[in-house]
Design a protein around this nucleic acid. Structure first.
Lengths: 204, 204
DNA sequence: CAAAAATTTAAACACTTGTTTAAAATAATT
DNA sequence: AATTATTTTAAACAAGTGTTTAAATTTTTG
């Protein structure tokens, strides 16, 4: 699996796995070290503390998390296509990293705000000019007039929630992993249709 | 605030607050005892262990959580009204208990499945015959034909996510609590319209 | 190749964890 | 009022926590 990685990279990889699976408080430095196959002291030698290692991990995960979004925002496509591709890419990404949205929302809800602001993904999104583009389209009547917050909630909620709520829904519906995965493929289509219809009322 | 509660009730109340705010691993038995204003040993005297106390708390929270849902499902109203009232009641409940959905989804995602099954809210939902009602309406063409899992994901995702993602959205959008709360009131309207339009295509 | 720097190790540090014990205080019963 | 049962307390327990230390090892440098 992992080949010629540096010690630092190995620790970071292991920490990412463990932190995402168990949360900051749900694991110990020793568990991370063991997962990386090394001594406990190395964790604090390369990263100064468990807390700092966590910040490094979160920053990297967040970057990965917004990377595909940013990519779609920057593309030279009409908003309706961006919407479709955004959903498609989100479901792709989340199929590979289903625990990331829950991890981000949970762990960051408990940390202070300065921690959040140290990770500058806000500017990254704003730099894509997606806000201006949406606003312009709203003025032209192509996009339903609603606050950007609501648009984000609709898009992210319908993309992320199905992955976050997997254990709960699986229990309620008594379905296995395979069935749920298939259901998600269907759901992606529903979500796309629903959101496109609602956000672009003049379309079709 | 709390008046003439029994020791047991005081501990359970304090534990509920602390568990929801910090999670099972994010707090200690001593913190719960302190929050309840009592000795540590009392926690284990009245509840056998931290783990057992947690189970009791989760069971109670879950009950509260599904109570209003169940109530709507059982009511003698057309499905479209049930949908509207469901959303209304969910936003009401979540405004008062914004941390509960995140708590349930997070903490239960980490526990084993037997733990989940010990809380029998699944049967409670099934007993309302809501599944049969939806299925019948689908046969009559009143409700869009899609799996119950997707309907649940759409309903819950659009109700719960805005509360779960509050810290994240607030940071991205740079808005305070009051503004976010107002935004949620607006968002509820959008969600209602979007879901009703999508789930009941023949309507209007 | 020898000296210096960087890395890795095992052991210990002080502290917190969940839980238990046995004595003290309170309440209930006879 | 005396005895029993219940509740509460402070103290202790072993195990685990994040972190540090100082020695051993490896790598880099001159």
């Amino acid at each position: 699996m992992e080949k010629d990685l540096t010690t630092e990279a190995k620790i970071k990889e292991a920490a990412t796995r463990v932190f995402i699976a168990k949360g900051f408080n749900g694991c110990s430095s020793r568990e991370i070290a063991k997962e990386a196959g090394m001594n406990v002291a190395l964790v604090n030698y390369h990263f100064q503390s468990k807390g700092h290692l966590f910040e490094v991990v979160v920053a990297t995960v967040m970057e990965e998390f917004v990377f595909s979004m940013i990519d779609v925002f920057k593309s030279d496509l009409p908003l309706i296509s961006k919407t479709r591709i955004f959903i498609e890419k989100e479901y792709d990404f989340l199929s590979k990293h289903p625990d990331i949205p829950g991890f981000i929302i949970n762990e960051l809800g408990k940390k202070d705000k300065t921690f959040f602001e140290r990770i500058n993904f806000i500017d990254q999104i704003r730099e894509t000019k997606i806000y201006d583009e949406v606003h312009a389209a709203q003025e032209k009547g192509e996009v339903r007039k609603m606050d950007m917050t609501s648009i984000m909630l609709l898009m992210m909620g319908n993309c992320h929630f199905p992955f976050m709520a997997k254990p709960m829904i699986q229990t309620i519906q008594c379905i296995d992993d395979k069935t749920y995965q298939n259901q998600l493929t269907l759901h992606k289509q529903y979500v796309t249709e629903m959101l496109v219809n609602y956000l672009f009322p003049t379309n079709k």
